[in-house]
């Protein structure tokens, strides 16, 4: 019957709308469900996953020594040309020439945090850090030198 169908239409439609309104109304009156994170304010309590890939860093120990031998495996592994390694020849105490890094240049602006360089590194010299606030006013600041001045390769790392 036409009228019955019509009324069923109206009632069914209104019920479905009211159901939706009940759901949104529930959230309106339950502020505990709010999931907003107040980002710059909660920096202190911000927990990042330990595997989060923010930038490539090179670990230096207390003696200002790192594990990079300058083998350029990371440079080859990188798909974007993010890493550039400049090597030099050091004189060992025995008087032999030894290859070592002069500068480990890391272009953060090119990096996509794919982790291939870290995977490729045979000595575990570089790793991914959790820092993610990279914005700067000068693009040149994104080109970083990872080995600290005066650092040298750790003894026994080949």
């Amino acid at each position: 019957m036409f009228l019955k169908e019509y009324i069923k239409d109206v009632v069914g439609g209104v019920t479905s709308l009211l159901k939706g309104m009940r759901k949104t109304g529930y959230y309106f009156f339950h502020p505990k469900e709010i999931i907003t994170e107040q980002y710059p304010d909660n920096r202190a309590t911000l927990k990042l996953a330990e595997r989060f890939r923010g930038e490539v860093v090179m670990a230096h120990d207390a003696n200002n020594e790192h594990a990079c031998t300058g083998c350029t495996a990371c440079e080859l592994a990188c798909p974007n040309g993010t890493i550039k390694i400049i090597t030099k020849f050091d004189m060992t105490p025995e008087g032999k020439k030894k290859k070592a890094i002069d500068t480990f240049i890391y272009h953060l602006e090119l990096c996509t945090m794919c982790n291939l360089c870290v995977e490729a590194c045979p000595t575990g010299a570089i790793s991914m850090a959790q820092n993610f606030e990279h914005s700067v006013y000068d693009r040149n600041k994104l080109t970083k030198k990872l080995n600290k001045p005066g650092s040298k390769v750790r003894e026994g790392v080949e």
């Binding site: 949104t24 109304g25 959230y27 309106f28 502020p31 469900e33 999931i35 907003t36 107040q38």
Partner: peptide, 13 residues
């Protein structure tokens, strides 16, 4: 504010 609270957000603060 109403929109934010319905959408489980805080809104302007």
């Amino acid at each position: 504010k109403v929109a934010a609270h319905i959408q489980i957000r805080l809104g302007p603060n």
